[in-house]
Amino acid sequence: MDNGLERLVFAFFNAEIAAAWAPKILEGMWVTILVSLAVVATGLALGLALAALRAYRIGPVDVAIVAFVDILRALPPLVVIIILFFAFPYLDLPMSAFTATWLSLSLVLAAFAEEIWWAGILAVPRGQWEAARSTGLGFGATLGYVVLPQAVRMTVPPLVNRVIAVTKGTALGSVVALSEIVSQASSAASLAGNPTPLTLGAAAYLAIFVPVVVLGRWLETRFAWKR
């Protein structure tokens, strides 16, 4: 028993190896944070734009948005990353691991966010539209000032969940050699011949995402209101 515990500590909680490889993991953390922030910014902005565009109910535009959303919700994010990373060079377009991961996950997050926000837009009572239109606000102004703010607030909980799920997908960037946490940790583990860097990687994820989860919970209470 004691022997087993010692071996476990040596393998996964090895202080010496942790100290040696911590800088690499920190580098990976930095990359993960950068990609995540970029994905959240682009993904949410694109998702909101698509949901707002869909509210205009222009036939062909609707079809295009629904097709985009359904395809990107159906494809595994890993597949999207691989396709973008390996396909773009054929078009003579440069594609770095960072760009491939960022773009893929942004598109995936945009698809989910569009669906969530569209549901929110539909959930805003018709009377809100009517009240705003009756005061002379146009369609776009009504959407922007009256409907979207309510739709966004109503959908904070599912959106926070989706943001967390998609940004954790930055780990998939390791497949195209993006030097984020998982990539750094697994190469460190094989170079060190000891899995302790993986433990560090797990700790790095906790350090990033526990605050995000807490922030999400705060947002949920902050934006919840009684009707």
Partner: peptide
């Protein structure tokens, strides 16, 4: 519509 005010049964205030 600026000239025609409207008051609704369910108020329809922006929450």
């Amino acid at each position: 519509r600026q000239k025609i005010g409207m008051v609704f049964q369910s108020f329809n205030l922006y929450p």
